[in-house]
Design a protein around this nucleic acid. Sequence first.
DNA 1: CAATTCTGAGACATACATGTCTCACATGAA
DNA 2: TTCATGTGAGACATGTATGTCTCAGAATTG
Lengths: 208, 208
Amino acid sequence: MATDRDTVLEAAVGVLSRRPTAHLDEIARAAGISRATLHRLFPGREALIREVGLLGLRRFAGALDTAGVEEGDAEAALRRLVDASVPDAMLCAFLAGENQLYENDEINDLWELQIARLHALFLRGQQQGVFRIELSAAWLSEAFFDLVAGVGWSIQDGRLAPRDAAFSLTELFLGGALRRPDAAAHESTTHSTSDRSTSDCRPDTDKP
Amino acid sequence: MATDRDTVLEAAVGVLSRRPTAHLDEIARAAGISRATLHRLFPGREALIREVGLLGLRRFAGALDTAGVEEGDAEAALRRLVDASVPDAMLCAFLAGENQLYENDEINDLWELQIARLHALFLRGQQQGVFRIELSAAWLSEAFFDLVAGVGWSIQDGRLAPRDAAFSLTELFLGGALRRPDAAAHESTTHSTSDRSTSDCRPDTDKP
DNA sequence: CAATTCTGAGACATACATGTCTCACATGAA
DNA sequence: TTCATGTGAGACATGTATGTCTCAGAATTG
């Protein structure tokens, strides 16, 4: 029985990120409380959704804080940000999917504040010569947040191991998908370059 | 007046991707038809959502087809896929956000089929030595689709110029965010390496 | 133990989106 | 013109999630 608000909100995210239109009964059951108590904690569905969004924003803001994104080398700051935000990736996924949230002024303002911090980080990195300048800082911000959300969805669906999350996110975002022969070859380069067809390797992917 | 189904569905995406719980009145108005006609074309909200999802999957499958992702060099194939899928990025964004869709078996099967094709592309690229093998093909598939969706959201919100979309997606996904001094320096490298604080550069970002 | 507070279960009313139907009008064909 | 088809507007019924209330029992506190 999780009677404290944040615990209930986290349970709510688990349901709402999968089924945004889930009934309050379902959310209450997921949190291990009754619908009455849920309604006592959060008066109405709208309030509940709003609080979930605010929790997500608080967590993301906290990640920006603990990572100290406004200080030091931009690349190092981004790596710290990844480590700090991956634990709350599911909440970020909720923020990314629930566009409805941004009709609320309080949430919208808080959101723009955090995105501005992200934007400033990338801008600073570009001025430091760390990040590419052919890609706009706005796009880098958007893409980064989308990938954090993607990590959240993947972990939730069991498609990505939580232990691999930070590494996968950091490496893909910073280094891209292309293999770079000139880069440090820290693994045995014994892959066949043959172009044999691989139609027999069928993964068991789920949904997005 | 768009009486043909696909045009109505595209109008529906424009509304539903922003507000997944939009009323049918709103969708009908966006399509320029009456609620009665909307109901004649698609009997019920559930049918409408399903058809939108199927349209998105058809378009994405078509992009995989026209790109010929199962043939030739994996990197070139991915670049072709970007060009082919960016025009339908908004539909992909809908597919990424509407988890509800995947309770339908028909849609789920079609989805897994396309994701398997993506997965096979990355696996082939890894075997060719084109894509990094430290990142799982499953994660590459997920990240790529999330970024396509991100392009769709960004364009819709006016945060990314449609002309820049394909380039931004390709470059970030393939090359990553880090600037590489050893790579081709096709722009004047006259950025100051000074670590001056840049808290005065405030972007005007919107929502995710 | 006694008292207060909180919770769960359920009943009940309400609001609202949706499904269904009718009818008048416009468009297009014969 | 006349008929046929399709559309828009609106009224109406319905289902269902939600808001509200009550009451009994559990948990906590004194």
